[in-house]
């Protein structure tokens, strides 16, 4: 399940008030989350959670659920 905290970071970066996101949500479904903005979202997530991803780990993400799992694994959850 995607955490409220991660959702907040993503929405803030995209200047969205609210958007319904599930684990299966993929980037193109979210308004503004295109391939150019992707880099800003990843940076915002890294910055907020104070974690560092490897490029490889980010490239293999398929959906928001995968991103949540990656953050959790970095935080040792």
């Amino acid at each position: 399940m995607i955490s409220v905290e991660l959702k907040k970071v993503i929405l803030k970066e995209l200047n969205l008030d609210d958007f319904d996101m599930t684990d299966e949500t993929i980037a193109p479904q979210v308004p503004g989350w295109d391939s150019l903005n992707h880099v800003n979202i990843i940076l915002a997530v890294e910055h907020h959670f104070k974690v560092k991803f490897k490029s490889y780990e980010v490239l293999r993400l398929k959906n928001v659920g995968d991103l949540q799992k990656l953050v959790d694994s970095k935080l040792g959850k």
Binding site: L43, S55, V58, L59
Partner: peptide, 9 residues
């Protein structure tokens, strides 16, 4: 594109 973009993010 994405690999270059992410490695230079």
């Amino acid at each position: 594109f994405k690999p270059i973009q992410l490695s230079l993010r």
